[in-house]
């Protein structure tokens, strides 16, 4: 166990370093004048951007040699200081607290919802492959996957905000505001996880041990519970890990249509506006979340499938 934790810590360190260095390098080599972009990001498109850019360049020391700037960032990172956003001037940590926090809530809600929806439907589909439940499940998941999230979001808004009048179309701060964006994301996730579950269950159902258990005359529910779910859960859990990663960044459009302050929205702005400390901070935070999620998924997989433990 201690070894496992140490390995994870080392991995987190490597991820932090690599992500920081890569972001830094990539943002450096991008074509275009960073100061201009920062100025446009700060003062909006009506301002005198060229003049503002001159002041930005001076103020931020963007003309310093890049190794100096990178070492600066590293030195601050060691002291847990992520610097200040070049655009808003606020500490990156403060911005992350709001935006990453909001995104994590959204992502967690979406995953919970998708876990309620996806695997449940997948189990029913998988138990009788090619039955009518399965066909319906397939059609549903394909429809959900063919709609871009903003179309799905709009449809949900029309249904829940206009037609039924239960939930607000946009906003944040209360769980009511969270419901629609989370549901939009959850439906997209459930579309895939229900199929992954269905396939896994369909495989398990045909496995000799499962058939045998059925023949033994155990009640259907018990068979599924004892043998089916556990075995089918392995690919589902491992896929869920991936989904969690995509979620945190795949929320951009959902965040912007629901006016929800999140990391995806912040990251896009930061990249477009060449806000390097924000990009680095955001990427770093996402990288660390990734390490945590992978660790959790591996632990879950190991618990589900004892044979895997040998390799850990």
């Amino acid at each position: 166990m201690r070894q496992f934790l140490l390995a994870r810590l080392a991995q987190a360190g490597i991820v932090a370093l690599v992500v920081g260095a890569l972001c830094f390098a990539l943002m450096r080599v991008l074509p275009g004048d960073a100061a201009m972009r920062i100025a446009a990001g700060r003062y909006g498109p009506d301002a005198r951007i060229a003049e503002a850019a001159d002041k930005v360049r001076l103020e931020l020391g963007l003309d310093r040699a890049w190794p100096v700037q990178f070492l600066d960032w590293l030195a601050s990172l060691v002291q847990f200081d992520l610097g200040h956003s070049l655009v808003t001037g606020a500490p990156v940590v403060d911005e992350l607290k709001v935006q990453l926090g909001a995104s994590v809530w959204l992502a967690a809600a979406a995953i919970m919802l998708s876990l309620l929806i996806g695997p449940t439907i997948g189990v029913f589909c998988g138990l009788k492959p090619n039955g009518w439940t399965d066909r319906l499940g397939l059609a549903g998941s394909v429809i959900l996957r063919s709609l871009p999230p903003f179309v799905l979001g709009l449809i949900l808004m029309l249904v829940f905000a206009i037609w039924l009048g239960w939930l607000p179309p946009a906003g944040f701060g209360t769980w009511r505001d969270l419901a629609l964006p989370a549901l939009t994301l959850a439906l997209g996730l459930a579309a895939v996880s229900s199929r992954v579950t269905r396939d896994a269950i369909a495989t398990v159902v045909k496995a000799p041990y499962f058939v045998f258990a059925r023949h033994k005359g155990l009640p259907e529910a018990a068979v599924v519970w004892r043998h089916g779910l556990r075995n089918a859960a392995i690919p589902v859990v491992s896929y869920l890990g991936l989904q969690a990663i995509y979620l945190v960044e795949g929320v951009v459009v959902v965040e912007s249509i629901f006016a929800y302050p999140g990391i995806g929205h912040a990251l896009v702005h930061a990249i477009v506006e060449r806000d390097i400390p924000m990009v680095q901070g955001t990427a770093l935070a996402m990288g660390l979340i990734f390490v945590a999620v992978t660790a959790a998924v591996e632990a879950a997989s190991a618990w589900l499938d004892p044979r895997l433990r040998r390799t850990q």
Partner: peptide, 18 residues
């Protein structure tokens, strides 16, 4: 005050009375 970037969403905010 809530900043809502998407025009469609703003229209729905008005229509839903939110």
């Amino acid at each position: 005050y809530l900043a809502v970037g998407q025009g469609e969403t703003r229209a729905l905010m008005a229509e839903s009375g939110e």
